[in-house]
């Protein structure tokens, strides 16, 4: 993608005469698209908050202050606090190896990194049960030594690492490839060490890409349901993450509380979308400046 094409493209008037539809058709298409999006996206979002506050602010706050809710929030925060840094470190390392060097098997490696995205969340949880569960590969050994992984916190964290595995790497690889390695080479020639080069040259260049990857990784880590549901064991106050707690409250017909807790996750989603939009814009800007 070369820069000139971009300028031509951005100066393109969307209402050039022969290149667009008659105003009536245009308005009709906009209307159909917006009605579809309102029905599928805006309405559910509004419904979460409306249901959460249906019985007033007091009931809403009471649902959030409940002990089981608080412990589920704590577990979700712990899970994200372990998962995100690990996958961030992996993402940066993988991007460095893949984007800055040429080697055989590169495409295969990229495909394998993307693999968790195409696996059903249920299977992502199941595979850890097959290894660490009682009937699994090392389950009996773990039981002898009284170590609990599945149906306990470590299992939840492992399954979450699996489902959020590709986020940072898949954002950074194309970005670092597009930026090339001339700047790093210059830094090295001028006498910088490898780590200095990385922290002072590479990192500032991919900062927004990292933020983009981390915010999406975090959203999925805090919101994952299927995979975590398989390995959790659903022990209230012990191995319940926020999404699992929403399910329990909902299945107990405690709708207001379920939506109150769900509104926290919806709020997180809105913040995620905002940060993501800003990061996307900044990345685009940076690539165009290059």
């Amino acid at each position: 993608m070369s820069a000139p094409i971009h300028t031509v493209h951005s100066s393109k008037s969307p209402t050039g005469r022969a290149q667009t539809e008659p105003p009536v058709v245009r308005r009709l298409l906009i209307a159909v698209a917006l009605i579809f999006l309102a029905l599928f996206l805006a309405l559910p979002l509004a419904a979460v908050f409306s249901q959460a506050f249906e019985k007033g602010l007091t009931v809403y706050l009471a649902a959030l202050k409940e002990a089981d809710t608080l412990s589920s929030i704590k577990l979700t925060l712990i899970t994200a606090a372990v998962t995100v840094p690990l996958n961030l470190f992996f993402g940066v390392t993988a991007a460095w190896a893949i984007a800055k060097f040429n080697f055989t098997g590169k495409n295969l490696l990229i495909t394998l990194i993307d693999l968790p995205f195409s696996v059903s969340p249920v299977i992502s949880g199941l595979i850890y049960v097959l290894i660490f569960g009682l009937q699994g590969w090392i389950g009996p050994w773990l039981q002898e030594h009284d170590i609990k992984i599945v149906f306990a916190v470590p299992g939840i964290i492992l399954a979450t690492i699996f489902v959020t595995f590709p986020f940072v790497a898949r954002e950074l690889i194309p970005l670092m490839e597009a930026q090339g390695k001339e700047e790093e080479e210059a830094a090295l020639v001028l006498g910088a060490t490898g780590l200095q080069t990385f922290f002072r040259v590479t990192l500032p260049n991919v900062k927004w890409g990292i933020i983009y990857g981390v915010i999406l990784c975090n959203a999925r880590a805090m919101g994952e349901f299927g995979a975590v549901s398989v390995v959790s064991g659903h022990i209230r106050g012990m191995t319940n993450t926020v999404p699992l707690h929403v399910e329990i409250l909902y299945n107990e017909y405690n709708y207001t509380a379920a939506f109150a807790v769900a509104s926290l996750l919806a709020f997180l989603a809105l913040i995620t979308l905002m940060v993501k939009s800003v990061a996307e814009w900044k990345v685009r800007q940076q690539l165009e400046n290059n």
Binding site: Q51, P121, G223, P243, E247, A262, A269
Partner: peptide, 27 residues
């Protein structure tokens, strides 16, 4: 096409990626 609120609509498209599936489900 240009219409008011286009940027917000554009950002909202990714809601299904960002909204946890359990929340989408009960809603």
């Amino acid at each position: 096409y240009n219409f008011p609120g286009r940027r917000i609509v554009d950002a909202l498209i990714d809601l299904p990626f960002a909204l946890p599936t359990a929340v989408a489900g009960i809603t």
